[in-house]
Design a protein around this nucleic acid. Structure first.
Lengths: 365, 365
DNA sequence: CTAATTTCTGTAATCGGTTACATGACACAC
DNA sequence: GTGTGTCATGTAACCGATTACAGAAATTAG
């Protein structure tokens, strides 16, 4: 019982008194088999607890039924929602998901990509750090890859990007519509493409409205948002609104305002980006730009599957488009002109507005 | 350029003017090779962009260098931290991680386990729903498996469990030490082993203190925590403290108290469980029981690697112990006798108390 | 210079599936 | 009975790595 070798397809064939070809036909569903044969095979499979050797199968079919996902160091909720969406889609396609996470620089991400090559049929790469050149070098020539490197539109490569630029514009326009004129921006870390796109959107929207832009440094952490507001107040800020590069910094900003006795939204309105779960739990609840993350992940995997099929079939339709996910404004109390006195707490947010996904064209960054 | 077949080890051998054996020796690092040979091989590998076929390798070595993780439908931060820890550990061992998430019932989890068998060297299974019988049926006989099915101590199988029972006891004792006497518990969904262990701990601690237990139904969602408190207040509760089965419900409870004008912690103290990031952002900041999730994930993977080694070496030390992770109390304002007027907002929590991991013995559920 | 080692290299078997092709069985029509 | 077509099945050749073993080359000893 201890060291019984695992059963092979030949063992199954022997027990079922058929050839290996018949066993394979039953198991893969390809090719005709009579009912009695099928039964005998299934009985033998069950009796021997036979599991096909995936390596052997992959060797003869030259497919792995596995896709890889390379991720940077992401905030909790974003990460889990994304994987959830991808995993669900993968399951419906009968695929497995290899994940490699927490790559906080380009070299690590490259290494992860290289070590995945050869064991996956395709890859999804999220990498705010990796530029096109670096990436191309790491990628296997013919391996289908879907990029989600928010910000840099790498022409010619299939990708899905969040419209950070457009989202930032919408956030600023929302603040302006609410009466704000002196709007400051707490930006994300330099070098992060998403952060830069959001800042660019802010700058453009301010310029378009004829307003003066003011950018305060941040790094996407809560404490940096807190510090940014403290610094602003210390130097006698007259801002009547703040657009933070992400929700986490926005929450830090809210707390700093609260500590300083500045009312939100009456004195200073605040808008974040991402719609993390905390956004609806803080008081005042935080206005933000929402992305339907799970849906985006699902969509990414579906597109990758299409790319893999396109490669297999040698038929041409390799969809090389850069698809754009547009964030939607979720207006809550932190930017409301007349905040409701008492917000209900049962806003679980699961059923709210979905982010739209539109296809074609390139991002207007 | 379009449909160039991927290079094989024979192509490399031909180009480098050596045998496949030498190429293999260079690439695997096993066996002696002269420097000139090594150089020629490496040059050929680079020139052909050769990547070893993992299936073929797995076929001859009968190892996949991959481990699987089966997960239920988890809350965001927990999920991502756990994967982060496991992924980091996997990388140091040169292993890849296949994840399958969002299994919200036993059948789905079983299916996931079966579909993973044969493509991994070992598995980590988190499954609050799967009982021992179901699990054993789904598991390959000789595949190393590490369980993290919080609550059910499946004797004889290597596992890591969170001491939910002990954590609940500690939480209640903390509330009692703060002066509370009428402590209510908002429990998690029935059938969830973790929820049940926490409730059992609450009941035992109350009994030990000679206090009367009161349990209100919840389901781990924020709105259920909110509803529970509203129900309590509606029927004229006299509770001076609430122990919630998790942080998310505790936050719902906090908001409900706030809406009703009940002060926390002055009138009612609140303690949660998990220490999700929100816990330190709500006001009052939430006292809770913390588990170092990433560390636990890392530890789980390390133990799995040991199990795989033990199986390979045929040497005996198969570590079958049930390791226990003890949550640590994080006392914040929601349960402080004299809450500080102004809490600093820069408590990022990354550097706080680590949860202890102690080994051996069984959980005293 | 020959013999004994040691070190490197190559040949070919092997891992466990899939599948093209050949074979055999059977039915039906004439 | 023979011919023809269909359908189920088996045989054996792959897929691309690793590695036991044998043989060649280089080193050292005597």
């Amino acid at each position: 019982m201890a060291s019984m070798k695992a059963a092979t397809i030949r063992d199954v064939a022997a027990r079922a008194q058929v050839s290996v070809a018949s066993v394979s036909r039953v198991l893969t569903g390809a090719g005709a088999v009579t009912e009695p044969t099928r039964q005998r095979v299934l009985e033998a499979v069950a009796a021997l607890a036979y599991v096909p050797h995936s390596g052997a199968r992959s060797l003869s079919t030259s497919r792995t039924d596995t896709v890889g996902v390379v991720l940077p160091d992401l905030f909790g909720e974003f990460f889990s929602e994304l994987i959830r969406g991808m995993d669900l889609a993968a399951r419906t396609h009968g695929l497995h998901l290899i994940v490699s996470s927490s790559h906080d620089d380009a070299d690590e991400a490259s290494a992860a990509i290289r070590s995945m090559r050869g064991r996956v049929d395709g890859m999804i790469v999220l990498s705010p750090h990796l530029d096109a050149a670096n990436l191309a070098a790491s990628l296997a020539g013919s391996l289908p890859v879907l990029l989600m490197n928010g910000g840099a539109t790498d022409a010619g490569r299939p990708s899905i990007v969040v419209d950070n630029h457009g989202g930032a514009v919408a956030a600023v326009e929302h603040l302006i519509a609410g009466g704000a004129r002196d709007i400051a921006h707490i930006c994300g870390p330099t070098g992060n493409l998403e952060a830069e796109a959001r800042m660019a959107g802010y700058v453009q929207a301010m310029a378009a409205a004829g307003l003066k832009a003011r950018v305060v440094d941040g790094d996407f952490s809560q404490s940096s948002g807190h510090a940014a507001v403290r610094a602003m107040l210390a130097e006698g800020s007259h801002s009547d609104a703040i657009f933070a590069g992400n929700d986490v910094m926005a929450v830090g900003a809210l707390l700093a305002l609260q500590e300083a006795g500045v009312r939100c939204p009456e004195d200073v309105a605040v808008v974040g980006f991402d719609d993390v779960p905390i956004a609806q739990l803080v008081r005042p609840s935080l206005s933000t730009m929402r992305i339907n993350i799970a849906e985006t992940g699902r969509r990414a995997l579906d597109r990758l599957v299409d790319l893999i099929r396109a490669k297999d079939d040698e038929a041409l339709p390799a969809d090389v488009a850069c698809e754009i996910v547009r964030p939607v404004l979720v207006a809550r109390d932190s930017s409301r002109a007349n905040p409701s006195i008492n917000t209900q707490a049962s806003d679980d947010g699961r059923t709210a507005v979905k982010s739209t996904i539109s296809s074609g064209g390139h991002q207007d960054v």
